[in-house]
Amino acid sequence: MNYFWMALAGLGSGALGAMGMGGGGILIIFLTLCAGLDQRTSQGINLLLFVPCAAAAVLSYIPKKLIRWKTAIPFALLGLIGAAAGTYLSGVIETSLLRKGFALLMAAAGVFQIFGKEKKESTLQQNQIDHRHTP
């Protein structure tokens, strides 16, 4: 595999992932469509890689006070139950079906990214938020 593309895929998905913008999807797309890896393996690679990357991002968000822990903790606790269930399912579902499920997720993500509710927050409000968090 071309090393340049590997690096680009890693950088791009890392950056998008840290922004909570679906970087994982991009990496899995690259691994399955470009590198030709199995769907389940690609998903596993993304999950594995997200752990240290997310940890690095979280460490940088903490001093900026961008994380709302009171909401995050109960959210994550229920999320863990969901994660156990979802991961169990990923092991019993056929790979081809898993791939189609992932394709549907990407289609939804794509539509969401293109037509998503950017209008709700005017540019002015966005700027105010940004200034509030700029040290």
Binding site: G17, G20, M21, G22, G24, G25, L27, I28, S42, Q43, G44, N46, L47, P74, F75, A76, L77, L78, G79, L80, I81, G82, A83, A84, A85, G86, T87, Y88, L89, S90, I93, L98, G101, F102, L105, A108, A109, F112
Partner: peptide, 20 residues
């Protein structure tokens, strides 16, 4: 909280999309 639950399912099942 329900959002958290489904975020976990998507993430575990499809290896991504929890953030979505």
């Amino acid at each position: 909280l329900v959002g958290g639950f489904f975020s976990g399912i998507a993430n575990g099942l499809l290896g991504a999309g929890g953030g979505m």
